[in-house]
Simulated assay, not measured.
Amino acid sequence: MSVVVSGVSVLIPGADSAKALAAGPQPGDGPVDPAALVGRKGLRYKDRATQLGYCLTSAALADAGLLGEDGTVSGGDVGVVVSSNYGNLDTVVRALDTLREGTVSATSPMDLPNASSNVIASSAAIRYGLRGPNLMVCNGATSGLDAVNWATTMITAGRVDRVLVVGVEPDNDVVRRLLGGRHAVDGGAAVVLEDAGAARARGVRGRAVLGRYVRAAGVGTVLERLAASGAPGPAWWHLPDTAPEGIGADLLPGVERIALPEHSGRASGALGVLQCATAVGLFDEYGEGPVYAVCGTDADDASAGLVLLEPPAPEAL
């Protein structure tokens, strides 16, 4: 069974599309305003990560041709997998500070739903009518690609034909304290993964084809296993967040290396999904691949990698 990307959205300062992301986010843009994209209704009392998740969800579902006129999905189940390591950290810290300084009764009842780590995934499902399996992944450096793999597993196991994968990280004072003063990406990307046959049945051409996924200790091992997967040699490979400049040069000599620029901030749990969106942008612009996406450096507990292949030509479908 083949799994394809049938929809994509990107929303970070300096890039609002897959092509813009592949070209490199530009510095200087201010923070994203969710109300300008999805309206103010339903945003009150939602944390920043959930608001950004709404924007990414709406745009990706629309790009995949799944969003109805009423702003929800109908006519079939869609699963949701969200990756975020810092998502509701500000809410949790605020609640803990309140408990430390006062009592349980002093906490805000409006904060309670936001204190659950799966709030982004569940909120997106409720707002947009996504009735398939629902999963939140907070798995460190490899989280984004792990989320893509979980979604692929759901599809190949026959649980659902389509899964929305969102990778999002907010930027706020709490996150910056955790990152030692650095800022987070304050946005992310979303992809709709779909069984290739189901996509063809509704007249949709995939924007990228998912290849082998690998999770192992160390970037070198991941790249070696991806290279041994039988896929053609990569045209590009996407560096992990904060990767050393020389990483992997001995394994993939001559292959163009791409990465989020330093000014974009730490992508963390959003990185793997941003890498998939970058691959779509490269295929849209150049029509060639594959792309190797890699998350997690040798300093992390694991690294993960994914091969993304260019979609077949329309006449081959």
Rank of each mutant, 00 (worst) to 15 (best):
V165W: 04
I155G: 00
L99G: 03
V137G: 03
G75C: 07
G76S: 02
V166M: 13
A62E: 01
G68S: 01
T156I: 15
D97I: 08
P133N: 00
D70T: 04
V82M: 05
H183R: 07
V160R: 00
L145T: 15
S108P: 07
D63T: 14
E169K: 03
H183V: 03
P113K: 00
M136Q: 11
L130M: 04
D171A: 05
I126Y: 07
S116F: 14
G181S: 10
L99H: 04
V168G: 02
N139I: 09
A115F: 14
A60W: 14
E169R: 03
V119R: 01
N118V: 10
A115C: 15
G75I: 14
I155Y: 02
V119N: 02
S116N: 10
L66C: 02
V148L: 12
D97W: 08
A95P: 11
S74R: 06
N114W: 06
M136H: 12
V92S: 02
P109S: 00
P109D: 00
G79I: 09
N172H: 05
V166R: 11
A115P: 11
G129T: 04
S117K: 13
T107W: 09
L67I: 04
S74Q: 08
G132C: 06
A125M: 06
L130V: 09
L67V: 05
N134Q: 06
L130S: 01
A157V: 04
D146T: 15
R177C: 09
R162M: 02
N172D: 09
A141E: 13
V82S: 01
A62R: 15
T98N: 02
A184C: 05
V137W: 12
V165E: 00
V160T: 05
G167S: 06
L178D: 14
G65N: 04
N88P: 03
A59R: 14
V82I: 10
S74W: 12
E69Y: 11
D77I: 11
L66Y: 07
